[in-house]
Design a protein around this nucleic acid. Structure first.
Lengths: 144, 144
DNA sequence: CTGTATCCTCTAAGATACTG
DNA sequence: CAGTATCTTAGAGGATACAG
């Protein structure tokens, strides 16, 4: 039968879903990939910030997403949460040492993005300009 | 009225959705955040790879996701696609120079993940161990 | 072999309203 | 101010079948 390859793939997927035998970095990569993590990390990069201040600094983030992103970061030990019980409650978020170490990488990501956004933008325009039919850009006729 | 802040936020969201006036790096950040981009990039890091070979190297990726991820990378000018028209069609994917420049950053990300996965794992255990009620870990009583 | 087209599911994420 | 609780929806992602 010729299904062997597919079967292997299925097993691989099941192992993956079972949480076993996967590349160790994946879960972290996925955690970091969440839509707002980088934004939040960059926001709290220099000094503690209150919840409300964070919302102001990250326009477009719903209060719900901000909270859940913060919880996620907190769970991963990247951000610490300090609650001051006073008349109106006050909470501050701050990067942990672990968070700072990740921040370095995130800065690299941000730097690359800012540096190359023009290149990417023009690549996208190039790609989108071609008619959907002739979109096999780099096509080589090599009729052997 | 005290709704001013919320109104501003709504406007910000609408501007965001309208695609105007947002942080320039965001779209790139989001593009990179897709589940499989880093995996694919690391896979094609050293040399051209055929579609089938890629599938073999990234267990758990469905054929559909692999293709769509590749298209996305191709659109952003990070990966080039070479089609050789022969009896069974053959396509090879390869990092573009732009792709290689991003690869450096991705490697940094991978390196950090591998280096700190233990720290994150233990932080998660710490967090999860606390009873959901007393999960306000860093609580400070500062009754003024 | 490579890729498109469907269908279907499940979760991320937004809107809204309410508590301490 | 900070946060939780619901409801709802758009889209990511999987399975499958089919086409060039």
């Amino acid at each position: 039968m010729t299904l062997t390859a597919d079967q292997k793939r299925q097993e691989a997927q099941q192992a993956y879903n079972g949480g076993l035998g996967q590349c160790p970095a994946r879960q972290l990569l996925e955690a970091i990939s969440s839509k707002w993590v980088t934004l939040v990390m960059l926001a709290v990069a220099d000094g503690p910030l209150r919840h409300s201040e964070l919302r102001r600094r990250i326009p477009g983030a719903s209060q719900k997403m901000l909270t859940s992103t913060l919880r996620s970061l907190q769970r991963d030990g990247l951000v610490s949460r300090l609650v001051t019980v006073s008349v109106p409650v006050r909470t501050d978020y701050e990067l942990t040492p672990l968070g700072h170490s990740l921040l370095v990488v995130v800065h690299g990501l941000k730097g690359w993005a800012e540096e190359n956004m023009d290149g990417v933008a023009s690549a996208r325009m190039d790609y989108d300009r071609r008619a959907p039919g002739s979109r096999n850009e780099t096509k080589y006729l090599n009729v052997q």
